[in-house]
Amino acid sequence: MTPGQTPVVAGGRTTSQVKPPPWHGWVVADLFLSELSSGTFLFAALGDVLAPGVYGRVSRIGYLVAFPAIIADLVCLIADLGDPMRFYHMLRTFKLRSPMSTGVWAISLYAAIAFVGFVLAIADAPQLAFARTLFGAVGFFPALYVGAYKGVLLSATAQPVWKDARWLGAELSVSSGMLGAASLLLIAMLISAQSAIHVYRAVLIVMLFLDLVATAVFLAQTGRAIADGFGFARTILFYALALGAGVILPLIIAVAAEEQAALAASAVLAMFGALAFRYHLVMMAHEVNA
């Protein structure tokens, strides 16, 4: 009997060669909240730097959203640990080749900067405007890193789908920008910052378009594995929620509609799509491995 000529393997469970990580709902929430926070902070800071007269009011609320969101994210990250009381062990080392290690340090740095932005936004004093702009600019790189590293973290594993997704870091990075644009658009509508609304609408359209391209690249690399692992019905659901309802539909609405209610629906749909994408992304490890 030689390799390749072996007859049917009878008996013995055909289990996967890899084990899915013990990541579920907390990690889905983490993927969503960290990128909502970093995207919101990034565009709030960008608004302060580029044109505080146009974006200042919206940016202020953006800072007030970004910090609580990253705190909620840290709570999710800690709750997901097998031994949450040892969360600080993450800070006993720094490993360049471990995206989780570099990510933890980046989130810690980003959370500290977001806290300063939060305090300055609460103070809302004209004499502190420059400090807010300065801290916003300092936060650019940590916020960009927080938005991007989790895709790299997932790609650098042995898990089906994830390990083939070479552009997942770019995909999640673009998605964090889309989340930031959607959240600031909603904020601009809530406080009736008319001059900012049409700008954030344009930014959201650009981000949704980039997200569409990035998602297409992700699916080109992993579509077959997703279909094999999820099965037909689940794959259709994934495409319908994460791509159809979460990217294409809000993009069409944002381009075509002028009414604020429609724009708000577009932003909410985009956020929903980002959440649906992250849910399926995490669950792929379990279901494709099953």
Partner: peptide, 28 residues
């Protein structure tokens, strides 16, 4: 693939950031 993954993530991040700057400047 870690180095390449970081580079690709960086490209995505810079593209997103650059596009946002252009859009915000153009409309502001």
């Amino acid at each position: 693939h870690l180095a390449g993954d970081y580079v690709r993530a960086g490209i995505g991040a810079l593209l997103m950031f650059g596009a946002a700057i252009v859009a915000m400047l153009a409309y502001a």
